[in-house]
């Protein structure tokens, strides 16, 4: 298991490095159109060929990887922070606030994740600038994805609230925000870290689902989801199998993330 996890980490590192150095590795910009090379076959100039608008597919894949790989963790960070704040205070304060938060979490969890995400995204503006669409997509992921982590954080906080060291801290006169900030939150770090890492592949896949349905990142900015839209053209895939490169890279990255997250007994952390 350890060896497989090391290989997965190396692969993730390589993909992340390639996306960060996209400007060096790709010979052209993701939006530059080569009108003399529409739907071109792979060549030394275009390693994955070009799309039907004549854009370098390899460059788009690298820049799209950068968008998905940078923004999914950003969305995961946002959702984990919301979960820490909401779940942590609910578990810490208890009483009516905890009951209200638990009902809110139940409400969020009563709606399937994809239903909630797709519906809310469809209600938001679709004809926005590429940068705005990226911000909307990943803010939405972060703002809607807090419920499950919040439930786990709340349960973790309830356990910690009754622990000996917190009782002792209270007996020493520590209370309120200081107790929460200095003594409770640092001990929630393992739970928060686990929730962060679990959210990353979920958000990458959610972005891909949104992108494939035309609700993700706007053109010409690439993302894995936006690039997967090419797959709707079934006949073109038969002649251009390298169109599957974004799907293959997505599977590799998500599988690597799953592998890295697995613990020795096979249960994801």
């Amino acid at each position: 298991m350890k060896r497989a996890q090391n290989i997965a980490l190396i692969l993730l590192g390589l993909v992340a490095a390639a996306s960060l150095f996209a400007g060096v590795l790709a010979s052209s910009s993701y939006s530059e159109q080569f009108r003399d090379s529409l739907s071109a076959m792979p060549s030394t100039r275009f390693p994955l060929g070009t799309d039907e608008l004549g854009r370098d597919r390899f460059a788009r894949l690298l820049y799209g990887t950068r968008v998905s790989l940078l923004l999914a963790p950003a969305a995961a960070l946002l959702s984990t922070l919301i979960a820490a704040l909401v779940g942590g205070t609910a578990g810490y304060l208890g009483g009516k606030w905890e009951r209200a938060v638990t009902s809110g979490i139940d409400l969020f969890l009563s709606l399937p994740w994809l239903f909630l995400l797709l519906t809310v995204r469809a209600l938001l503006p679709l004809n926005t600038s590429p940068v705005t669409s990226v911000i909307i997509t990943f803010l939405l992921l972060g703002c809607l994805g807090w419920a499950t982590p919040a439930r786990i954080v709340r349960a973790g906080t309830r356990t910690l609230v009754h622990s000996d060291y917190l009782v002792q801290a209270r007996a020493n006169g520590v209370s309120g925000i200081r107790l929460f900030w200095r003594h409770l939150l640092p001990n929630l770090r393992p739970i928060l870290l686990a929730q962060f890492w679990i959210s990353v592949p979920v958000f990458i896949l959610s972005e891909a689902n949104l992108g494939l349905l035309g609700l993700g990142v706007s053109e010409p900015l690439p993302s894995w989801g936006a690039m997967l839209r090419e797959l709707e053209n079934y006949t073109a895939i038969l002649h251009n199998p390298w169109m599957l490169a974004p799907a293959a890279l997505l599977v590799v990255v998500v599988c690597c993330l799953q592998l890295v997250l697995r613990t020795e007994d096979g249960i994801p952390c």
Binding site: L212, L250, V253
Partner: peptide, 13 residues
């Protein structure tokens, strides 16, 4: 693992 790594929309395709 592969099924988990594929978005539902790609599975549909």
């Amino acid at each position: 693992g592969v099924c988990l790594a594929l978005p539902a929309a790609v599975i549909a395709l």
